[in-house]
């Protein structure tokens, strides 16, 4: 077995395993795209990919570099307008899974993609912005977040809430009438966090060789651990082979050492 893998490979493989056959997935470029394609080639051949540019049932022949990349359109099942995607698919509840990233994710799974720093008018760092993340977070049935596990990325509370997780607890999300189920797993290079019954993210799994202490040291709040922590299965030769030889042979997204 190949025991050397990069951190992006570990994230992608664990994200792929969360996907189910038949899932309708709102995909971004980068690791979520790779995770969906890996799932399609292993346990979820009927997974359907939707892109914000209005592409439904995408079957990209090569790795897309942009959300507007024409490889997403070629061979797709249907093309529609962006309004159709956001209103009829997402808001209406026809999307099972959404992938999210962001500069910060907090204790209750809220995500910041807007500004670092508490003062919006005078930010420490301006970020690119929501894109479609706000809608995905609110309306997809299950959201998965892929992110490196670093203290600065995991503050107690986000500086700015671009995309709603559980707000300040599950009851608050319900009260805000957000139809989707919210963040169901945060996959990092240390392990996996999942919401408990209050919506607080707790450590539920570790990757091989990682410890609860590793996760706590790299989290900005007092991270709770589940009573029983499971260990994720290491990436298999097949998973690594599909990623490296078929999906991202140039290592555009997967090469970075971690």
């Amino acid at each position: 077995m190949d025991t050397s893998y990069t951190s992006p490979e570990l994230l992608t493989i664990n994200a792929a395993r969360l996907l189910r056959d038949g899932d309708v997935v709102f995909v971004g470029v980068g690791l979520p795209n790779l995770a969906c394609n890996l799932a399609r080639r292993t346990h979820a051949p009927r997974l359907m990919m939707i892109y914000e540019a209005g592409v439904i049932g995408a079957q990209p022949a090569r790795l897309p570099l942009s959300i507007g990349d024409p490889t997403l359109v070629s061979g797709s099942l249907a093309v529609c307008s962006m309004y159709d995607i956001f209103a009829f698919y997402l808001q209406r509840g026809n999307v099972d899974v959404g992938f999210l990233g962001g500069a910060q994710i907090d204790r209750y799974g809220n995500i910041n993609a807007t500004v670092i720093g508490r003062d919006y008018a005078h930010p420490k760092v301006r970020l690119p912005g929501s894109g479609g993340a706000q809608e995905i977070a609110a309306w997809a049935n299950r959201c998965y977040v892929l992110t490196p596990h670093q203290k600065r990325r995991f503050p107690e509370k986000v500086d700015f809430c671009t995309s709603a997780g559980f707000l300040d607890g599950k009851a608050a999300r319900d009260a805000a009438r957000l139809r989707g189920g919210g963040p169901q797993a945060v996959v990092t290079d240390i392990g996996i966090l999942e919401p408990d019954e209050t919506g607080e993210l707790i450590l539920t799994a570790l990757h091989p060789g990682k410890t609860v202490e590793d996760a706590r040291l790299n989290t900005g709040w007092a991270l709770k651990a589940a009573g029983h922590i499971r260990f994720t299965d290491p990436p298999t030769d097949l998973e690594l082979q599909i990623l490296r030889q078929e999906l991202d042979p140039q290592g555009i997204y997967l090469k970075s050492a971690g």
């Binding site: 962006m82 956001f86 997402l90 008018a121 929501s130 479609g132 706000q134 809608e135």
Partner: peptide, 19 residues
């Protein structure tokens, strides 16, 4: 320019612009 507060950003999302 956003870091220096020298441009105004009218914050949108893909959904709000679509609508």
């Amino acid at each position: 320019y956003a870091n220096h507060s020298e441009i105004e950003v009218m914050e949108e999302t893909e959904g709000s612009l679509s609508m």
